[in-house]
């Protein structure tokens, strides 16, 4: 740029720290991080061991059971969750198609990891959301963390996850949970904060303790929003299993990854549609279930 001729250098080109400094800093941080991981590796293993066992157990249960049993159980869950014949039939058709094209086992693997990660996201997200709703200060601390978790490209936090946990199913699971937990936390917090102040005042006036208020009033009234959070969490876990396949998670995600690498157009789309089918089944069932919980609010006095 011509204008640079008349300006001091520092105002024209950004005065960056010299490369060697940055290289040094990177080395120190990376080494320190790896050192910590080496130091506490055995403890980390012990901590994630139950996760590993649970995930393996569920995956084996899903993949080794006869497909007829799995399908029947699945249809029962869908029916009693949604009480809708239409959704149940849709589920049957979707799952049969998946089986016909030979993706049954991969789908089971994916189902197992999505189930586990959703459960973990709920177990982690619910209490954090409740804490956030209780105090503005906690909300002030957690909100920016959630912002970072949601906007940070998922490939980036795969790096520390892999450094800490290595390659495998559990690190993939952890990456999925990190990605899927923010909506659970946010919507739990929001749901509790939106509870009618008058009803809360009534609960106070009758002498409710904070725990009684939480379980009798806040949680039931926040439930529709919390259900929306669970729904979002499921959807995000499904989206993330593809990315997580890069660190060794099997199932439909790995097939998709292979299809990208080898330009298997048809195979890629088949796997994609299988994921979509599962997503729709989860979504419709959980929404219908949430709606059913809210029956009392539908009948309005005319």
């Amino acid at each position: 740029m011509a204008i640079c001729e008349y300006l001091p250098r520092a105002l024209c080109r950004f005065p960056a720290i010299s490369d060697s400094y940055i290289r040094q800093a990177r080395q120190v941080i990376d080494e320190g991080f790896k050192g910590i991981v080496r130091e506490y590796g055995s403890i980390i293993d012990i901590v994630v061991r139950p996760l590993q066992l649970f995930l393996n157990y569920l995956e084996r249960l899903f993949t080794t059971s006869p497909w007829t049993v799995v399908l029947i159980v699945m249809l029962l869950v869908v029916y009693f969750g949604s009480r809708s014949i239409r959704i149940t039939i849709g589920t049957a058709i979707g799952m049969v198609l998946i089986g016909v094209v030979g993706l049954w086992e991969d789908t089971m693997t994916t189902l197992a990891i999505v189930t586990v990660s959703t459960l973990i996201a709920i177990i982690i997200g619910l209490p954090i959301g409740i804490l956030m709703a209780r105090s503005d200060r906690i909300q002030g601390v957690i909100n920016p963390i959630l912002d970072v978790m949601q906007t940070m490209p998922s490939f980036v936090y795969l790096i520390p996850v892999v450094v800490i946990f290595g390659i495998g199913k559990v690190p993939g699971l952890i990456a999925v949970v990190i990605y899927a937990v923010p909506p659970m936390i946010r919507l739990t917090n929001l749901g509790i904060r939106l509870v009618d102040k008058e009803v809360l005042e009534a609960a106070d006036a009758f002498g409710s303790s904070p725990g009684q208020k939480l379980w009798n009033v806040q949680m039931p009234l926040a439930l529709p929003t919390i259900m929306a959070g669970i729904n979002q969490t499921i959807m995000m876990s499904l989206a993330m299993v593809v990315v997580a396949s890069m660190v060794g998670v099997g199932g439909l995600g790995r097939n998709t990854l292979q299809a990208i690498n080898n330009q298997f157009f048809t195979f890629g789309f088949l796997n994609g549609f299988a994921l979509v089918a599962i997503a729709i089944i989860f979504d419709r069932t959980s929404q219908a279930f949430g709606k059913r919980l809210q029956r009392h609010s539908e009948v309005v006095h005319g």
Partner: peptide, 21 residues
Amino acid sequence: LREFRRHKTAMVFQKFALLPH
């Protein structure tokens, strides 16, 4: 105070403040 509210007082509200569920 909680005991007082539980056993000595009861309140009725303008907008009813019933639990909808």
